[in-house]
Structure formats: structure tokens, C-alpha cells
Design a binder for these strands. Structure first.
Lengths: 256, 256
DNA sequence: CGCGATTTGTGCACGTCTTCACAAGCGCCT
DNA sequence: AGGCGCTTGTGAAGACGTGCACAAATCGCG
């Protein structure tokens, strides 16, 4: 342990450290750990135990340890993890050492809000361009950025190193926009339009559908209602819940 | 099969059909099927095969069949599924037969956009109230709704049957808002604030964090970049991808 | 009326994810 | 120096999710 090899350090010279291929489930949790770690760092903590960090991130501590072990993390037994070092490592693995440029297409209701969302800027991203197909919107200034026409995408891509695109258009336009993004070299797309996108292999698409989230909650409401309607199953509504829901996406119990 | 018992039919009399407890993964996909089915219905299709529907929803056909079988679905071998009937069934299971009232707390950047998002209204939800802690915002009218102060929550809950709350406040305020929501009987929360919420058992929380989605994409970008930097592993970038990524959240191949 | 084409529903095997439980390692205190 | 308490890292087991492949069922046609 004498040789602290900071993977994220600027002067890294050798071959690429060959990103350990992490389980998808782990990757999805790393950003949450990162956020919790930044909170800890801001409140003056220098080290944190897996117990403490897992509570702050809302997960099981064993899961957290396994996640961190996957990226070959250096914790110290009996002490915990060095907060600053862990931040550095996770940011490196997530590819956040460079501030990535993002193109946002669709400056409607939602796109407008996304353009003004400071959470992007504060967490490693930079909105490099706002684009819209509606020429009447072109020229509008939002948050210091001027809206350009979506046909300018090739020009934008030439100016910036674009790898990520965000689609906030109506569903009907989304596929065409996706094709245009792919055509200029974008290989990751965050899609807010309620539709399935067809993209070539090698392009990653993540979808966020606000209505779907509500519908999932609606199901649980329905289920809870149908449970309380059945007095048969002994016990209160608390114990009546057939286990398996708390872990998936529900977060209970946060420590401080 | 002579006895088509429409579970979602209005006149359902007997005891609650005891919602089959579906796997969470299935529940998460049902809304996607529902959207695809509505599209099909709008384009005049009366029946659809598992192959066709799965393509429209961007999933494996076997997975779709298994999902539908879980809710005891009635397909017809050799023919497929009745689109209208399936819509009815899924909407029933998801608890969408009633239009659910939703309280939206936080009318900032994002909350403003959510208040104007018509995808909620068109997919089974009704924004029953807009609330904010900032008194200077109270009284503002958005999309036909007047913003009220968050302290009015008990009054709102008394007027409406509130079960779902949406939090679109800054992270610092989210926990307090969650507590207030829970206090007035809300049992499902959709949280857009980048923080972990602590809620009592029996309350479901789903979290949507826009920056996290981008960070996950960033990881894949980083990985793809580190792969193309290694000429060692034979084959093109296409085949170099270690399998297991296409299925998780990436949607390829959509048929029409 | 029977047969072939088609499609559903599902048993089974496999891979992934989660959780427990504990050995190994580290620092501190005496 | 030695022991003790604390914490990490991980083996193993079980739960969960996925996808193949095929039997069972249905329709349409000759």
C-alpha cells in the first residue's frame, strides 16, 4: 500500500488502466456513492466507513463494499475509506475527469428546464449546444446559450467533441433526432421522449420517462390498496407487505 | 375461454381479484407495453403478436410473453393478443382505471416544466396541486393551476384524495417536503431531488436523477474509448464489446 | 373434417445480483 | 510488543431475472 497509484491523477502515463468491467448494477450505483461522498467531503469528513457511506447512499453496506472492491478500491481495514481518494477513483472510472460536452435537442417545456438545470454543470457536464427543429425558437437565448437549428448539428459537432446527446423532443421527432445525433458521432443518448429508439450497435441509449415512473408508483398504490382491503392476511399493513420491495428502488433509513 | 372476465371492467363486483404479485422487473415494463399498445390501437391494429408488441416495446418476445403470463393474460394461440383487452388489463393492474391525483412540490426550473408536461395528463394522472415553499411564487398561475404554499398541504389533502407526491425541490428541502407529504397520507413519492429520502415503511419512493443518468452514460463513453485505444483484442469495436450491455437498458432494434 | 401454419404459455438452464457471515488486516492502547 | 476492537474484502448460497426451445392450443383452408 506504499504505492498509492491514483488512477485519476493527471500525470498518468502508462497504458490505459483497462477499466475493470464492472457489473451494470454497480455502475448505476457509483454516481450515488459519488454524490454522498461529495456531501461528506463538504462536511469535513476525511474518511468514512462502508456503514456510514452506505447509509448516506441508501444501500446495503455489503453491497457497497462489493461495489467498491470491483473497482479495486483501496480502503483501510479498521479505518474505512479515504473520502478524497474514493471521489477521485470513482470520478475516474465514470470518466468524469474531463468535463463532457452534451448537446440538448428540443427546447420545449422539458428541454427548457433541462437547459437551466445546474445539476448538469455541477456534476461533470457542460451543455455545449441547444438545438431545436422549430425555426421560430432558433435564436432564443436560454441560460447564456443561443438556440440553434437542429440541422446545425454537424457544425456543432465540428466545434465541440460531442459524445453525448439529450433528446427532449416530442416522441414523433425523437427517432429522427437520434439518427442525426448518431450521424455526427454521438455514441450515448439520454432519451426523454416516450418512445423506443432504434440505434446502431455501439450506441448506448438510456431512457427516462416521467409518466412511466408515476405508473409504477400507481401500481404499488393499487397493490397497497388491495392489500388493506383484505383483512384475511394477519398482521398490519406493515408486515403484510410481501418482502422484496424495499430493496429494489425504495430507499428507507438514512443515517447522518 | 368462453368466460372473458375483464378484470378492469367497470361493473366488477366480487372481491378484489387479489393482484397477482408481479416481479418488479415486470411491473417496470408494463407501462412500456401499455404505451406501445396505445400506439397500435391508434393505428388501427386489433390484435398483435408477442413478436410485434415486443419489437414495439424494445424487449425480447419471450420476456414479453412471460410478463403477460404473470398477470394471467389472455392471448390466443395462433393469433396473438387483443389490443383493446390487453390495454384494459394492464391499465387495471397498474391502477390506472382511476385518474390519480398528484401533488407537485417545488415550482422551480424543473417543477415548472413538470407542471406543463402533458404526458402526465395523457397517461392517467392529474396534477391536483402545485406547491412551493417560496411565498413569492405563491399565487403564480401555471398551466391553469395556482401555486399554493407548501404549508397548505393538509388543506389540499383534505380536498383531494392524494396518494402520490412529486418532489422537485432543491436537495436541501426534499427531506422536509417528504415528511410533510407522508404526514398528509401520501404513500408514493417520485423524487427528482438528488438526495436519499428517509420514509417510513409502506411508503414507496422512486428516484429520478438526471445527472446520474448522464454519469452512467459517461462511464460507457469512457469504457468505449478505452476499448478502442486497445488494438490488442481482435475484432472491430462492434464485436469487442463484452456482452451483457445490450439487454440492460439499451434498446436496439425496433420493428414497425 | 383433418391438417398445417402460427403463436402462446412455460419448463429449464444459465447468468446476474444480493446478502450473509467471516477471515484477514489495520490501528490503537496498554 | 502484544492484544483487542474495528473494518474491509470476499466466498458461498440463495433470490431473481433472462432467454431458449418446445409442447399445447387455435385458426384457416382445402
Amino acid at each position: 500500500m506504499s504505492q498509492h497509484r491514483h488512477p485519476g491523477a493527471p500525470g498518468r502515463a502508462g497504458a490505459v488502466p483497462a477499466l475493470p468491467d464492472l457489473p451494470e448494477a454497480t455502475v448505476a450505483r457509483l454516481p450515488e456513492y459519488l454524490r454522498a461522498l461529495h456531501n461528506l467531503a463538504d462536511t469535513g469528513h476525511e474518511t468514512v466507513s462502508s456503514e456510514g457511506l452506505s447509509a448516506a447512499a441508501g444501500v446495503n453496506s455489503a453491497k457497497l463494499r462489493k461495489d467498491l472492491s470491483h473497482l479495486g478500491s483501496y480502503g483501510t481495514r479498521g479505518v474505512g475509506y479515504d473520502v478524497a481518494l474514493l471521489i477521485e477513483q470513482i470520478e475516474y472510472v465514470l470518466g468524469l475527469t474531463q468535463r463532457r460536452a452534451v448537446a440538448l435537442v428540443g427546447v420545449g417545456n422539458l428541454g427548457h428546464a433541462l437547459a437551466g438545470y445546474d445539476g448538469f454543470a455541477s456534476r461533470g457536464f457542460r451543455i455545449a449546444a441547444l438545438l431545436d427543429a422549430d425555426r421560430s425558437r432558433v435564436g432564443e437565448e436560454i441560460n447564456g446559450l443561443v438556440v440553434r437549428h437542429v440541422d446545425d448539428l454537424p457544425a456543432v459537432a465540428a466545434e465541440e467533441s460531442l459524445a453525448i446527446g439529450v433528446i427532449a423532443t416530442p416522441a414523433a421527432a425523437a427517432q429522427q433526432v437520434a439518427d442525426q445525433l448518431v450521424a455526427v458521432g454521438v455514441t450515448s443518448i439520454l432519451n426523454f421522449a416516450p418512445c423506443v429508439l432504434s440505434v446502431p450497435e455501439g450506441v448506448d441509449v438510456r431512457k427516462v420517462d416521467l409518466a412511466i415512473e408515476l405508473q409504477i408508483l400507481s401500481f404499488h398504490e393499487h397493490r397497497k390498496a388491495s392489500l388493506t382491503a383484505l383483512p384475511a392476511t394477519g398482521g398490519s399493513a406493515l408486515t403484510a407487505l410481501p418482502g422484496g420491495f424495499a430493496a429494489t428502488d425504495t430507499q428507507e433509513a438514512i443515517g447522518t
